[in-house]
Design a protein around this nucleic acid. Structure first.
Lengths: 366, 366
DNA sequence: CTGAAAGCGCTTACAG
DNA sequence: CTGAAAGCGCTTACAG
C-alpha cells in the first residue's frame, strides 16, 4: 500500500529545514547557511530574503546536523556523583524521610559553568552517576560522544580510564586530581582547613576532634581530612575519623553518622568538623534531636559557605570556597582545550577563606 | 606548503569512528552498527569480532551522527528562569553579598527529570534564561534544535510563541499553564495554599496578612496569591501584596522586600506568607536583623518544603510539593510525546500538603 | 557574491 | 546474516 506522504515527507517533526528556507527565499542552501553563519559576504538583497524566510518559518538549524558538519556540538558534558542508595531514611522519627536534598555545591558549580558556557554559545549536558556505579566508564563515554568536552566532578574515573578517555575528548576535572592528560580545578583545601583547624585547636583549645567525611574516595574530603589530622597531631589533640565517620556530603548522611555513633555508645569529641556545610546541617540536626547543644557541648563546622549556612539556628562556622568561579574556570579551561589551546597549568587552585560564625563556639557578638 | 596529516586525517579529535571499528574487525560498518544496536541478526562470530574491536578502540558512536541518522538525539532540553540582575546585594550589612543561591525547587525538579530520563537513555540539556530576557524566544528555539523535546519551567514563553514552537517539537511546561498545544504539569497550589491560609486565618486568627510573591508573572506565584487573597477576604482579614511585595523566589529577594517595607515605614502584617521556602528564609533573616521576632510578632510561612526548612532557627511551616515527582512526570509526558503518543491530559496536577511547624506560631511541642 | 557538490559519522531499508 | 548505498541536515571549500 502506498503511504500518504504529503508535505515534503516530513511527518514526525514539524521543524523546517534549511531546504525549506532556501526554497521560500529563492536561494541555495549555501546562501542560507552563509547569512546565518558569516555576517559578511552576502548581498543585502539575498540577506533580507533569507532572514525573512527564516523568520516566517521559525527556522533554526538542527543541532545534530550542524554539529556533524561543523565538528562542534557546542555542548559540554558535566558529570557529578550522587550517593548510592537513593538517600535511605533513618529510623523512626526520621526528619529526612521522603525528603531529598540537592547538593548545593554541585548546583552552584553548575551555575558557574553555565554562566561561562552561555557566553560561548555552549550548553550543559548534565548527568549524575551513582558513586558505586560500575559502569561509570561506559556511561561517561556515552556522554562524551554527545559533547565537545567534559567536566567531571570529584573523582569520577580512575586514572587509567580517565587518561584513555582524555585521548578522545578534552577533560577537566573539578575537585579531582590532575593527570598528565587532564586539567584539574580545585579549591585550596589545605589552606582553608588549616585555618579552621588552628582556630578550633588553638583559639578554642579543643582537645578532641572528629571528622565526618564526604565520599570515601573524594579528593576534597581526603585533603580536608589529612590537613585536619595533621593539625590535630601537631597540637596533640585526639582525632577520630574512618568508616564510622563516613558521610556522603548530604545532611542525611551527616545525621546518620551521629545517630550510629550515639547508638554505639561512642563518646563524642568536643568538636566535629564536617566535610561540607550540608553534612554539618545534618550533624547539627541530629545532635539537637539527641539533646546535645551546639556549640556549648559539641562544636560543629562546615565547608563551602552555602547561602543557608547563616540561616541556621546556630550560624555555621565554615570555610568559604569560590564555588561559581570554580565552575566558570573549569569551563574556560575545557573551552580553551576544545579550541586547541594547550592550558598553561594542569592543577588550578582557587583560594579559600575561613568564615567564623557561631557553631565553632564563638559568641555572636565578637 | 603541504601539511602533515598523518593518522587517517584525524587531528582535532582522537575519537575512533565506526569505520575504524569496521576495519579492525574486518566487517562492514553496517555490521558494526547492527551488533551495537540490534542484539539479534548477527552471527556470534561477527558479533565477537566487532565487540572486541569496539573495546580495543574505546568506541562509542558519535552523538550528532547518530542523532541525525536515527532522528533522535536522546536529549531533552530544560529551560528555567533566573532573576534579572545577578542577585544584587542589599545595603551595608548585606548578609547575602557575594553569596549566590541556587533555586532548590529547580534543582530538585531537574533531579526528578534526570532520574526518569536516565531510564530511557536520555540526557538533560540545561539552560537558564533571564526573566527579563527579550530574546527568550530565540534562545529557546536554539535549545530546542539540540533536543527531542522541551521542558519549560514557569511561564517562559507567551502563548503565541509557545504554541508556535510546539508545532516543531514536543513541549511540556512545568508549573506553567496548559495550552492547546502543550501539556502542563503542576502542583495543586489552590489546595495547599487554601489549607495554609485557613490555618493562619482561622486556627491562629490572624487579621492581617502579606504575600511576598515570586516572579510577577509566575503562574505558581499567582495561583498562591489568588487563593490567599480569597481566603483573607472570606474572613475579613486585611491583605497586602503588589509591587512593594514582589520577590523573586530567592532568599535575597525576600530579604529585600522586608528591608524596603521597613525603610518606607510600612507597618508589617501579623503574618507574612511567602511564595516559596527560600523567600521565607530571606524574610526571616531580614526580620531577625531588624529585631522582629518570628513567630511571636510576625508569623512567616513558605511553600515547597525543601530539606532546609527544618534546620532553621525557627522551623518553617510550609506546603509540601512532590517536587521530584513533578519533574519525573514532566519527563514521562515529553517522552511519550516524542514517541508520538498523545498525552491523555493537558493539565496534570499533583497533590500538596500543609506541613505545620513553628514559624506559623504553633509551639514546637504539639 | 553565489550555487553545486562533497562530506561530517552514523542508521536503515534494500539486495543478495 | 551481511555489504553497498542512500540519506539524515547541515557547513565549507571549490568554481564561477
Amino acid at each position: 500500500m502506498v503511504q500518504a506522504r504529503e508535505d515534503s515527507g516530513r511527518l514526525g517533526t514539524g521543524a523546517p529545514t534549511i531546504y525549506d528556507v532556501a526554497r521560500v527565499a529563492g536561494v541555495s542552501i549555501a546562501s542560507v547557511s552563509r547569512v546565518l553563519n558569516e555576517a559578511r559576504n552576502t548581498r543585502p538583497d539575498t540577506r533580507d530574503k533569507v532572514l525573512q524566510a527564516v523568520a516566517e518559518l521559525g527556522f533554526a538549524p538542527d543541532g545534530a546536523a550542524r554539529a556533524l558538519s561543523a565538528r562542534l556540538k557546542e555542548v559540554v558534558g558535566v558529570i557529578e556523583r550522587r550517593p548510592s542508595p537513593p538517600l535511605t531514611g533513618l529510623e523512626d522519627d526520621d526528619v529526612f524521610a521522603d525528603e531529598a536534598e540537592s547538593l548545593q555545591f554541585h548546583d552552584m558549580i553548575n551555575r558557574g559553568i553555565e554562566m561561562s558556557a552561555q557566553m560561548r554559545g555552549f550548553d550543559l549536558l548534565i548527568r549524575s552517576v551513582d558513586i558505586a556505579d560500575h559502569q561509570a566508564d561506559y556511561r561517561t563515554l556515552a556522554l562524551a560522544r554527545k559533547s565537545d568536552g567534559l567536566i567531571l566532578h570529584d573523582r569520577l574515573l580512575d586514572d587509567d580510564p580517565l587518561v584513555r578517555l582524555a585521548g578522545q575528548i578534552p577533560i577537566v576535572t573539578l575537585a579531582g586530581v590532575a593527570t598528565p592528560a587532564t586539567v584539574n580545578v580545585r579549591s585550596d583545601n589545605a589552606s582553608g582547613m588549616g585555618e579552621l583547624a588552628r582556630h578550633l585547636l588553638r583559639d578554642h583549645g579543643y582537645r578532641s576532634i572528629g571528622y565526618v567525611s564526604g565520599y570515601a574516595d573524594s579528593p576534597d574530603s581526603r585533603a580536608r581530612h589529612d590537613t585536619l589530622a595533621a593539625e590535630a597531631a601537631a597540637t596533640g589533640a585526639s582525632f577520630a575519623s574512618g568508616p564510622d565517620w563516613q558521610g556522603n556530603y548530604y545532611a542525611a548522611g551527616g545525621a546518620q553518622v551521629i545517630d550510629r555513633l550515639l547508638a554505639a555508645g561512642t563518646a563524642l569529641p568536643r568538636a566535629i568538623v564536617c566535610a561540607n556545610d550540608q553534612t554539618a546541617l545534618g550533624v547539627m540536626g541530629a545532635l539537637r534531636r539527641h539533646g546535645i547543644d551546639v556549640p556549648t557541648r559539641v562544636a560543629v563546622t562546615g565547608f563551602d559557605d552555602i547561602a543557608m549556612a547563616r540561616h541556621l539556628r546556630c550560624q555555621l562556622t565554615t570555610v568559604r570556597q569560590q564555588i561559581r568561579e570554580l565552575g566558570a574556570t573549569a569551563f574556560e579551561v575545557v573551552y580553551s582545550m576544545i579550541s586547541h589551546v594547550v592550558p598553561p597549568e594542569r592543577d588550578i587552585v582557587l583560594p579559600t577563606r575561613l568564615v567564623i560564625r557561631e557553631s565553632c563556639g564563638c559568641g555572636t557578638e565578637v
